[in-house]
Amino acid sequence: MIDLLADRARTLGRGLAATTAIGAAAGAAAAAYGWWEKDQFEVRRETLPILPGGSAPFRILHLSDIHFVPGQDKKARWLQSLAELKPDLVVNTGDNLSHTHAIDPLIQALEPLMEFPGVFVPGSNDYYAPRFKNPAGYFRGPSRPKTEPIKLDWPKLRTAFGMGGWIDLTNRAQSIALNGLRFDFSGVDDPHLKRERYADWHRGTANQDTRPHVRVAVVHAPYQRVLDHFTQAQAHLILAGHTHGGQICIPGYGALVSNCDLPTWRAKGLHDWESNGLTTPVNVSGGIGTSRFSPVRIACRPEAVLLTLTPRT
């Protein structure tokens, strides 16, 4: 009997050891794949009919969550190559940085895109450097700012964007004439930090306000309260980022977290948002980078979005 029990114990031990080895191998394979996928940059293309009748198509290049780190040469070359798309407008929805020394190489990577008109708002990782977090913590809800954050040089980055001709929409509204159309922009500071303050829409002269125009809201984190506000303010389009598309997704299912109160199935893509009987299309970018402490993506490739606006049918 003792020998039989000993044999069973040895068999169980070998089974547990094999299971542990298989689990470790699977985990290593997933990490290796995620490390590879984080650099498989793509351009997602969408078409949205929201322009006044008779307008020519208008192309917006939506960038978000670059999370640049010095030495990311492949990412830098890809960002530079996006200028070949020749967008009519570049919209940057924040979280450009993931390192205290990232500003200069980031601006160098974005310099070709600054040949085009642009607007921007900041994300939390333009103000503060990321720190290591337990990935399991995201399942308990949106991440929280650290009590003693490492500050980034947001004024330097904002100035560089401005010197490149891009317009700061941080809690501001601005109207711009582009390709014969009037675009009314309204942007907010990062809702993830609860810094949003609404500036409504810019108002021009009486004659200007009667001309056809397009209202575009720009925000980093797509919290429901912000989407509700801009939908009720009758925005024609809302552009946001922050979610990383979930970053680690399950094939065939999608994102497990959105790092805000947005439903996970909306963590990436072009969707309609409804509030008080009104509807506004929202494009949530899956983002270009990751935190430097979690440099993997699974079933969620990094993306820029080329959004072609066409006349309403």
Score class of each variant (00 low, 15 high):
Leu178Trp: 11
Leu181Ile: 13
Leu181Glu: 10
Arg182Glu: 06
Asp184Cys: 04
Phe185Ser: 01
Ser186Arg: 00
Val188Lys: 05
Asp189Pro: 04
Asp190Gln: 04
Pro191Ile: 07
His192Cys: 07
Lys194Ala: 10
Glu196Ala: 03
Arg197Ser: 14
Arg197Asn: 01
Arg197Leu: 10
Trp201Tyr: 00
His202Gly: 02
Arg203Thr: 13
Gly204Gln: 01
Thr205Ile: 05
Thr205Asn: 12
Ala206Lys: 10
Ala206His: 12
Asn207Gly: 15
Asp209Gly: 13
Arg211Cys: 12
Arg211Leu: 13
Pro212Gln: 05
Pro212Val: 09
Val216Gln: 08
Ala217Val: 01
Ala217Leu: 02
Val218Lys: 04
Val218Leu: 07
Val219Tyr: 06
Val219Leu: 10
Ala221Ser: 13
Ala221Tyr: 05
Pro222Tyr: 09
Tyr223Gln: 15
Tyr223Met: 13
Gln224His: 14
Arg225Phe: 10
Val226Pro: 07
Leu227Gln: 08
His229Ser: 03
His229Ala: 03
Thr231Leu: 14
Gln232Gly: 05
Gln234Asn: 14
Gln234Ile: 05
Ala235Val: 05
Leu237Asp: 13
Leu239Val: 11
Leu239Ser: 14
Leu239Gln: 07
Leu239Arg: 08
Leu239Glu: 15
Ala240Leu: 00
Gly241Pro: 03
Gly245Phe: 01
Gly246Val: 02
Gly246Trp: 00
Gly246Asp: 04
Pro251Gly: 02
Gly252Ile: 02
Gly252Tyr: 07
Gly252Ser: 10
Tyr253Val: 11
Tyr253Gln: 10
Gly254Leu: 05
Gly254Asn: 11
Ala255Gln: 01
Leu256Asp: 00
Val257Met: 08
Ser258Ala: 15
Ser258Pro: 07
Asn259His: 12
Pro263Val: 06
Thr264Ile: 13
Arg266His: 12
Ala267Ser: 14
Ala267Glu: 09
Lys268Thr: 14
Lys268Glu: 15
Gly269Glu: 11
Gly269Asp: 11
Leu270Phe: 09
His271Cys: 11
Asp272Ile: 08
Trp273Ala: 14
Ser275His: 07
Leu278Pro: 00
Pro281Gly: 12
Pro281Asp: 13
Asn283Leu: 14
Asn283Tyr: 14
